[in-house]
Design a protein around this nucleic acid. Structure first.
Lengths: 216, 216
DNA sequence: TAAAGCCTACGTATTTTTACTTAGATCAAT
DNA sequence: ATTGATCTAAGTAAAAATACGTAGGCTTTA
């Protein structure tokens, strides 16, 4: 029987050693190589065409998500399993959207990783326990949000006004900064409030923070 | 020559395996045990009295910081080295305050961990590269902050007013909610602004968020 | 070419907020 | 018993923000 060929992508050497030790007893698995960063990873995928890629989602520079997308486009037969310490809803959903086949937190029992490898190699997706819960709750929440709060497009000028006022400027200051009349600023703000259905400065600030319009 | 006796505290089995593999070639080092959580760790320290404890700072339930404090109080001869994936300024400073002897990021070369073990075993502190930089910059910043922004105490009522206004209430609404006159709310707000040296609603909201007075 | 969206800006009026001061009542600590 | 902090609230003014409608100029798109 053909062995399952595995590539490890992980920026911490010690974890690579750990994974190697972990998989060592399983004679049906073969570690064909490892990579410490995304660039190296792409090269190894190209060269080795592994069946399974065990990947840390938190990589330096290019994230595991982007790397996964590139792999899926170029080498769809190599299937990515995230093996990571962060059980983060955003990472989980983005990871699967990017085309990953499995998500195994490092604090799962080592056995789970083996199980994931076999399942994914058979073409199934692997997700378990807390990961599935997060995924489901994220799905439910996103469905709810879709109904109530579809992304409202703000014009560029509205963005600027919102940003400046969220940083504490008065209408007058904003007007001076943007070289427009204070009346124009008022109009933009008025339109903002109508668009967003928000009628207090405080909530506008929170909106700006939550939508990454300002950084705190 | 006596071997250096090492205990590993780390909640990810795979990393434990990695560390064991990593240290294996060094015959002067002896891994006497490992622990997957804080409670187990304390027992092992008590039983084994290791020279060095290699610890992941991110442990479930009780953090590595607290654990370090307890170990330093009870077993000052066992010296803690953090071995962790997060190079976080806060963790670094808190870690050393808690009594750690070393801080080695997992993305350092494995060799660095060996070096840290020897240095710490000789009674020195180990810190290198990015870790020292963060430590120093944190020190400098904290000195600067000490001068300009000592924690300003807000009264309970001021807190309430700040919270409500940050959630988007007008002075009138706050007055009604707290069953006080709008003039009182104005006074509280005025005092808040003087105390915090902030003169816009937006910055008050940001202050409230940054100081966990409101949640977003 | 017409429609739509955006940026600009004003008129008018109202509401809200801020500035600054003063001050009584209460409670805790010295 | 006095001081100090806090909560309460008002007077007086000025400044700022909001509501709502209207509208010209501009660019993009149907």
């Amino acid at each position: 029987m053909k062995k399952i060929r595995i590539l490890i992508v992980e920026d911490h050497e010690v974890v690579i050693k750990g994974i190697i030790t972990l998989l060592e007893p399983y004679k049906e698995l073969e570690i064909v190589g490892y990579a410490l960063d995304s660039e190296e990873a792409m090269k190894k995928v190209e060269d080795l065409r592994p069946d399974i890629i065990i990947m840390d989602i938190n990589l330096p520079e290019v994230s595991g998500i982007e790397l996964t997308e590139k792999i899926r486009e170029g080498y769809p037969l190599s299937k990515v399993i995230y093996y990571t310490s962060h059980v983060d809803e955003k990472l989980i959903t983005e990871g699967f959207e990017a085309g990953a086949f499995g998500y195994v937190p490092k604090n799962f029992k080592p056995q789970e990783l083996i199980e994931a490898i076999h399942m994914v190699n058979d073409g199934q997706k692997f997700m378990k326990g807390i990961v599935s819960e997060k995924f489901i709750s994220s799905y439910l929440r996103s469905e709810k949000k879709k109904k109530q709060k579809q992304d409202i497009p703000l014009s560029e000028r509205e963005m600027e006004v919102l940003k400046h006022m969220s940083n504490g400027m008065s209408n007058k200051q904003i007007a001076d900064t943007l070289f427009i009349s204070i009346r124009t600023v008022e109009t933009h703000k008025h339109n903002l409030m109508k668009k967003l259905n928000i009628f207090s400065t405080a909530e506008l600030v929170i909106y700006a923070i939550q939508n990454n319009i300002i950084k705190i």
